[in-house]
C-alpha cells in the first residue's frame, strides 16, 4: 500500500518530493521504537487473550482463531512500530522546527519559532522509564494549535525548549 521512503519510485517528480521530504531530518531516539512496541503490545494483548479463550472453547478446529490473531499481533508489535519510527523525524533550524510523521497519512509540519505561544515538555510513565520526552509547541492557529514531537531525549527536549524560548521575544502567558 505504501512504499518505504527510500525505495525507488516510478515518477521522477514524486521521487524529488520524497527526497525533499527526507532531506536533513533527524531520526528519533531508538528507544522510541520500544515505547511504540509496548503500546502496540498493550493494544494487541486483549485480542490475543480473547482468541485464546475462543480456542479453548473448541468451537472450530485448532488454530483457526489463535493463528491469524497471533500473526497480526506479531506484525503489529514487531514490524509496524519500526516503520512508524522510521517515518518520523524532525529538523530544527535556527528559526523553525519541522516535524514529519505518519505512514498512511503523512504530514510534514513546520512551526516558526516566532509563532510559538507556549511550550510543553511532557513525560509519560513509559517515556520516563526510557528517559524520553514529548515536546509540544502551541500556536495561535486553529489548525495545528499544538504540534507534538515525541521520542526525543528528555535533556534534548529541555534544551530545545530553551532555544525556542529565547527566540520568542515576549513570553506569552
Amino acid at each position: 500500500m505504501n512504499e518505504d521512503p527510500d525505495k525507488c519510485v516510478a515518477e521522477t517528480s514524486d521521487e524529488a518530493a520524497q527526497t525533499a521530504a527526507r532531506d536533513g531530518l533527524t531520526e528519533l531516539h531508538p528507544n522510541h521504537v520500544k515505547i511504540l512496541r509496548i503500546q502496540a503490545f498493550m493494544f494487541a494483548a486483549p485480542f490475543v487473550l480473547g482468541s485464546l479463550v475462543l480456542e479453548t472453547a473448541r468451537l472450530m478446529p485448532t488454530g483457526v482463531f489463535i493463528l491469524p490473531v497471533l500473526l497480526a499481533a506479531l506484525f503489529l508489535i514487531i514490524r509496524v512500530p519500526l516503520r512508524r519510527h522510521h517515518a518520523r523525524g524532525y529538523a530544527m533550524s535556527d528559526d523553525r522546527l519541522r516535524v514529519v510523521r505518519g505512514l498512511l497519512f503523512r504530514s510534514d509540519t513546520v512551526v516558526p519559532f516566532g509563532r510559538v505561544q507556549h511550550i510543553d515538555v511532557n513525560q509519560g510513565p513509559l517515556e520516563r522509564f526510557y528517559n524520553l520526552a514529548t515536546l509540544t509547541l502551541h500556536t495561535a492557529g486553529s489548525h495545528n494549535a499544538s504540534v507534538h514531537l515525541p521520542g526525543i531525549l528528555n535533556q534534548d527536549a529541555l534544551a530545545m525548549r530553551e532555544i525556542i524560548r529565547s527566540h520568542i521575544k515576549r513570553e506569552t502567558l
Binding site: S13, T109, G141, S142
Partner: peptide, 25 residues
Amino acid sequence: LQSVEISQNFIGRRRNYSTLQLGLA
C-alpha cells in the same frame, strides 16, 4: 500565518497530490 503543514494520504502519495494546511489564528 502561524504554521504550515503538508499532508498526504496513502492515495495522494501514489497519485502525487497533497494538502497544504495553514495555521490561521
